[in-house]
Write a protein that binds this DNA or RNA. Structure first.
Lengths: 236, 236
DNA sequence: CTACCCACATTGTACAGACAAGTTAAATAT
DNA sequence: ATATTTAACTTGTCTGTACAATGTGGGTAG
């Protein structure tokens, strides 16, 4: 029985307005009391909704001031290249080296696919990340065609695939699993990253779980960590 | 001004009893109403305390049943070797190769030390983790002497340094930052891990932040990921 | 004996109100 | 004009209550 929870309705309403930039990052939400009037409820319920958004990382609260909309994208615990998003120091560029296209699943993927996924075809695209005009990360991406249509790279919101998912499709990252290996660069990867064959490379296999049922994003990253190590931080 | 928050007192009371095994893992806490009587308060306040413990990962709640004490140690987002703690598949052993001793800070540490830490001496110990009797991880550890006394390895609770901190010193991990690099094995590391010199090795520099002010734990890990990749998962 | 139902304990949601504590800007005093 | 006080508004804490939803075990009807 899909029970309607009032706090959940409020939570989803606010979340949608954040995702669609009606409440842009950095701005303050209406006060708790204003939401009470708007939804005909009490602060207890509104605060419960805001607490959930807090846990999901959409907002932060400031005592005596209000609830501020956060910049989305610092996925807690997610691996990120040192300097990424702290983009003042480095110039980060992304080039799509293989446009999204429909292919068969690649056996490279180390995570077991669901039956739904196996029965579907697969959308694949490849990107290379540059820092200071030097290639640092080679990135292969896959997802099931029956869960999400192919998206042309020139339609990416601000060039970001994840931002596109959030703002255009209202899909959020719920979690991820990763496997990390240190390997020697193959000929192909060495060429694409401009390094020596056999140089030590960090290989990351990753599966993102999303808020859309049956949609997982699979990634296969090769990182040249000699100059730009991978960073990862998280807090409880 | 008495900034004592009632829910925080209850939260700390329950946390201490969990850490000292008065409420052992797997057991159920007293019901919310029992805590209400015990602390002379209402369910709203007790539930706030339990919500905090939920967020900290000490308990989980089961609708209609109660609040269950969780096994501590699956630090969200923490890197762990595949198979670690899922110890049914693999035999994991830890050998302390260098007993805790007082030394000067090692320049290997990539994180900036606080003034407090720099002015203190440093406790160092080294461990090697084995899976199926094969060495997989070489681990250097440091922390400031003025923040925590040296602990002999034979006093570790169940051989675990983190369990010792939690149960004997009531110190919890609050978060961590990591830097990951893929490097070639040096002569020393190759010997200790039983691999070829120059083999690709995952180098992890990590700083744990703890609930004790001024106490950070610094780690420097070298992982042979060819057979046992590093795993990392997290969920929102 | 089995299957069902019901009472009971537990957590989940929601309402209504009170006061504390932090922030800000307008009003006031110097 | 500047500094201080005040008032208004915000989020934080807490009380008290009611009912809903879920899990458990015992009693009852078959």
């Amino acid at each position: 029985m899909g029970k309607i929870k009032k706090y959940h309705q409020i939570q989803e309403y606010i979340k949608k307005r954040i995702q669609t930039q009606k409440y842009p990052p950095g701005s303050y939400l209406p006060s708790e009391n204003e939401f009470c009037v708007q939804f005909g409820t009490t602060r207890t319920t509104v605060r419960k909704a805001l607490d959930e958004l807090l846990k999901e990382g959409f907002i932060e609260k400031e005592h005596g001031k209000g609830s501020k909309v956060l910049e989305r994208g610092k996925y807690l615990g997610l691996l990120s290249v040192k300097g990424f998003s702290g983009s003042t120091d480095y110039k980060v560029k992304t080039k799509v080296t293989e446009e999204p296209k429909i292919v068969a699943w690649d056996p490279l993927i180390v995570f077991p696919l669901s039956e739904d996924e196996k029965s579907s075809q697969c959308v694949y695209f490849q990107r290379v990340r540059y820092i200071d005009d030097k290639p640092v990360v080679l990135e292969n991406n896959w997802y099931a065609l029956n869960a999400l249509e192919p998206i042309k790279s020139n339609e990416f919101v601000e060039g970001s695939f994840f931002k596109t998912l959030s703002q255009e499709y209202l899909i959020e990252i719920m979690g991820a699993e990763q496997e990390l290996r240190s390997v020697k660069a193959s000929v192909d990867i060495a060429k694409k990253l401009g390094i020596a064959v056999g140089a030590p490379i960090l290989h990351i296999s990753i599966r993102f779980r999303t808020s859309r049922p049956n949609l997982n994003l699979y990634g296969d990253l090769y990182c040249n960590t000699t100059e730009y190590p991978i960073r990862n931080s998280y807090f409880l």
